[in-house]
Structures are given as structure tokens and as C-alpha cells.
């Protein structure tokens, strides 16, 4: 890092620059094993149990969009980070940074939606904080949520993906990019199909339903900022196995596909707020797929690819026309604030 270096928007993109910032600055100074394992939630040994602990801040613009708002997003995001770690979310904290002049009625709308979403997810908001800053010192409202949840010892591996092996199947519970394109359209006031809305939803019910099948889920992650591509690139890099994806199996709605063609976006990199990527053993794949499809949030679930011994560390996509190409992590795209 040079003395004159400054923070750029891309440091928050969820892509390469964000990773470099985390590794070269935060990990260097906060160095400890729990943090540097880079899981969605920190997994702590507490007494005889395992506690998952996570935090996230929300700065989405615009605050309200079809299918959700900043508050719903703040609850879902933290519930989902706990859930994909294999934990059962128990309690949340909520902190608000409010700009002087922000409408109290808008704040109430956001809070009502947070309360509804927390009820739906079966978690309680048990503590919080409020700060107000002068006009112009923040953009209307920023929200931070933290959350805790318990998990059983055998689920600890899910966060690390340590049980994943060649031959395992990769699943996704539905279409990619709905949240990213919805927020883009709302922000730029683009007229899109009324069917288009954010997929923002708490995933703990869906994941619990899959656990009840008894299948061993070997890895889970929610593909938010940076999208599916970033999740799978990180997994391939950690495992030093290859990943093969079939583009024609990856579901993308016609509206999102059309918008991607117009704006030049790749759905693999778009943000999702109600999607989970699961890796399961081949023998469990059918029963997990059935379980996913039984749940309202998994009706369009599909198998999208497989772990392989080939090309270790790399994700290779068989394109819809039958060609092959590498999928790399997001490197600085001009996307709006989406979460």
C-alpha cells in the first residue's frame, strides 16, 4: 500500500479489490484463525456448543425497490449468512445511522418490514443502536445487523467446505440476478416488466427443510455481491479442485436475461438475496433436489455443475453453445449499491 492510495468504490464491490483490502489490511492487523478462515459467519466454540456470529451493513440505493427495502434486506442478509453456515439463527442486533431530515414515516415502513421479516424467519431483534448525523453526512439511512445462531458440531464443516470432493454436485435454488437487476432498474428509473422483483428472502426455512432429509450438505454459500461466479471461484481456490458448470442449466429469468443483454452484464456476477449454492454428494443429489423443490423458495432448484479433479483451482463454464471458458472473480464492474 502506498501512502497516497485512497479508498475507491471498487474496494466495496465484493470482487478482487475488496479481497485485497481484506487480506492486505484487515487480516494483517486483526489476524486470528477464526477471522482468516473467511467463512460467512465466524464459528466459535462456546461451552459444549458451536456459535455462529456474523455482521453486515446495508447502504442500498434506492431504499425501496420491488420485492423489498433496505430493512428487509438487512434482516435477510444476516439470517442468510447464519443459515448458510449451517446455524439456526437465534437473535439479531440492529443499528441505524440516520441522516437528519429523513422522513419518520419512511423509517417506520422500514422497521415494520424488518419486524415482519424477522417473524417470518423466527428470529428476535434483541438489541440495537441509533445514531443521527447532520444532513449530507450519510445517504438517508444506513443499517447494520449482527446475528448469532447455534449449530451442531457436524455442521461446522459446511462453512469451510472441507468435506467437498470430486464428483460432488452443485445446486442452486432458482434464478440468478433478480435482485441486482431490480435494484439497477429502480435506481435508474428504467421501465421493466412488472414481474421483475428482488428475490430478497430469509433462507433458513428452506435450508432447514433440506437438513430434514438427512442428506449431508457439504458446503453452502449465498451468492450476494459478486454473484455465483465469485462464490464458486473462492470454493475452487480453497479446495484446489476444479469446478465445471453447464451454462444451459443455470436459470435466469427472461427479464433479467434481456436486461443483461442490453447493459452488458453477466448474470453469473449479479447479486442475489434469496439464493443458496449447495454442494452435496452425488448419491444425495436427487433427494436434496426434491427437498429444495418442495419449498416455495426452491421450486426452480437445479443442478448446475460438478466438482472435478480437472483444472484444479479453476471454474470452467461449458457455454450455452458448447464452447468452454474460464469463469473468474468479479473485477471492478460499474454496478450500483445493491445491498
Amino acid at each position: 500500500m502506498k501512502k497516497e492510495d485512497i479508498v475507491l468504490l471498487n474496494h466495496g464491490s465484493g470482487g478482487k479489490m475488496a479481497h485485497e483490502l481484506i487480506r492486505n489490511l484487515f487480516f494483517r492487523h486483526f489476524d486470528n484463525e477464526v477471522l482468516t478462515s473467511e467463512t460467512d459467519s465466524a464459528i466459535l466454540d462456546v461451552g459444549d456448543g458451536q456459535l455462529a456470529f456474523t455482521t453486515d451493513s446495508y447502504v442500498v440505493n434506492p431504499l425501496f425497490f420491488p420485492g423489498g427495502n433496505i430493512g428487509k434486506l438487512a434482516v435477510c442478509g444476516t439470517v442468510n449468512d447464519l443459515s448458510v453456515s449451517g446455524a439456526k439463527p437465534e437473535a439479531l442486533s440492529v443499528s441505524f445511522i440516520l441522516e437528519e431530515g429523513f422522513l419518520l414515516s419512511d423509517l417506520e415502513k422500514i422497521v415494520i418490514s424488518m419486524a415482519e421479516t424477522a417473524r417470518e424467519a423466527g428470529v428476535a431483534v434483541v438489541t440495537g443502536d441509533t445514531k443521527v448525523v447532520e444532513h449530507g453526512k450519510c445517504d438517508k439511512i444506513f443499517i447494520n445487523t449482527s446475528g448469532v445462531g447455534w449449530l451442531s458440531r457436524e455442521k461446522k464443516k459446511i462453512s469451510y467446505g472441507t468435506g467437498v470432493a470430486p464428483g460432488d454436485i452443485i445446486m442452486l435454488n432458482g434464478t440468478l440476478g433478480d435482485h441486482g437487476i431490480t435494484v439497477l432498474a429502480a435506481r435508474e428509473s428504467l421501465e421493466m416488466s412488472p414481474d421483475l422483483q428482488s428475490d430478497c428472502a430469509p433462507l433458513n426455512g428452506l435450508i432447514q427443510h433440506v437438513f430434514e432429509t438427512g442428506a449431508a450438505v457439504k458446503f453452502m454459500r449465498d451468492p450476494t455481491r459478486g454473484g455465483l461466479a465469485t462464490v464458486l471461484c473462492e470454493l475452487a481456490e480453497t479446495l484446489q479442485n476444479g469446478i465445471e458448470l453447464e451454462e444451459e442449466n443455470i436459470p435466469v429469468s427472461p427479464v433479467v436475461r434481456g436486461a443483461c443483454e442490453v447493459f452488458g452484464y453477466d448474470p453469473l456476477y449479479l447479486a442475489n438475496e434469496g439464493k443458496v449454492v449447495m454442494v452435496v454428494a452425488e448419491k444425495d443429489a436427487d433427494s436434496v433436489l426434491t427437498a429444495l423443490r418442495e419449498h416455495p423458495l426452491g421450486q426452480e432448484a437445479v443442478m448446475i455443475g460438478q466438482i472435478t479433479e480437472n483444472h484444479p483451482g479453476k471454474v470452467v463454464l461449458r457455454t450455452e453453445i458448447g464452447g468452454n471458458r474460464i469463469v473468474d472473480m468479479l473485477a471492478g464492474e460499474q454496478l450500483p449499491r445493491i445491498c
Binding site: D266, L317, R318, T319, E320, I321, G322, G323, N324, R325
Partner: peptide, 9 residues
């Protein structure tokens, strides 16, 4: 050309 993997064809 790169996105669709055309050189591989």
C-alpha cells in the same frame, strides 16, 4: 468470441 468460448470450436 471469448465469452462464448468460440476459439475452442
Amino acid at each position: 468470441i471469448q465469452k462464448f468460448g468460440i476459439p475452442s470450436l
